[in-house]
Write a protein that binds this DNA or RNA. Structure first.
Lengths: 196, 196
DNA sequence: CGTTTGGTGGACCGTTCGGTCAACAATTGC
DNA sequence: GCAATTGTTGACCGAACGGTCCACCAAACG
């Protein structure tokens, strides 16, 4: 019984998320957000609140989406050990290395804001814990499949794999070439996931 | 034959470096810099140029200092294998975890600025390459001392150790408690530095 | 002691920031 | 078609930003 929205909320959030992903929070101005969303100030504020709330919404979209991808990948890979290897190698999955240079929005945000923004810190911990749990479950599955030593503690192993993955993300951000990065990823995966 | 400076240049740079370290580049205002340095605008601009140049100077001070610490630690540790373990464990060296939460200024800056600031990217690569070379040299020494398999490629191993260390830095930034972080650090060190 | 030279501090500048608001437009129910 | 309600647009706001400039000051030298 009133005028309907002339934009797709999810589409706007994805555009905004990409902008924050490429430029970071502080370096993204309201003007940038209006440009990539195609909205006017009033519409953006009316629909999403201020810049900070919009950022949190975009960040949540990112963690939900990538969490979904991870869940699906872990579930659909026949051998759990292969899934764990794929998890570590994820940052070098993109052929040209563009994804490696772009990094991970959650990690970027953690580095930029975690010390000053409690909401971002909370989201970082939430994501971190959820990811650890998913990977630990997969480690246990690999043990059950006889591909990984039963001596390993699943949660501890999951944390080490996550640290390794995020270390690769960091090295990608320094612009390290994709071939070198891939080799390092293989070294980490091989050492942290020793055959039984 | 003119009025001498009323401040210690190095002292100012260290204060400025700490400010950037705690708050990041964009979130540090000129006013913050004046406060922590105790200088007026004229003095700061006269001595160091604009904010960006001052930041690069502070960043260089950081990389020089921590590079010096690393060099000294690697050289003064009797067994090279112990030095490599200490390198990986460095982010959890602080008892209370404060250092872990603060992270590494070079990593923070890389995440915040590497995609948009060529100078920061260049400094990141310079630091990354220098660190890799130092650690690789230490790996070779550990091999010579019979503590590490000769099958390992020193440079490749160094990259993996650096990735592991930076992964720990990331996890520290998420506010993960120091005991858990220490356990993960041990797991990484044990897996990446297998006894011969 | 006066001149010179560089250091210092703060007033001041234009710009850009995030955010508000009011006039207008579009849709629905009556 | 009219009233009610919500979406849209862009002018507008105060504040804070980084940066410039200049009047003043302190030391060094002849």
């Amino acid at each position: 019984m009133a005028r309907p929205r002339q934009f797709d909320e999810e589409q706007v959030i994805r555009a905004v998320r990409d902008q924050f992903w490429d430029a970071g929070y502080a370096a993204t101005s309201l003007e940038d957000l209006l440009r990539v969303s195609g909205l006017g100030k009033g519409s953006l504020y009316g629909a999403f609140g201020d810049k900070h709330r919009l950022f949190l919404r975009a960040l949540r979209e990112y963690t939900d989406t990538s969490g979904g991808y991870l869940r699906e990948m872990l579930a659909s890979t026949p051998r759990a050990l292969d899934a764990l290897r794929a998890f570590v190698m994820a940052p070098v999955g993109d052929p040209g290395g563009a994804a490696a240079r772009r990094g991970c929005l959650m990690a970027n945000s953690t580095y930029e804001l975690a010390t000053t923004d409690p909401d971002v810190l909370a989201e970082a911990r939430r994501t971190y814990e959820s990811t650890t749990a998913l990977v630990a479950e997969c480690v246990a599955r690999a043990q059950g499949e006889g591909d990984l030593s039963r001596d390993l503690d699943p949660v501890e192993t999951a944390r080490a794999l996550l640290a390794a993955q995020q270390g690769l993300v960091f090295m990608g951000r320094t612009g390290l070439d994709i071939d070198t990065l891939t080799a390092t990823a293989r070294t980490l995966a091989a050492n942290l996931l020793p055959d039984v």
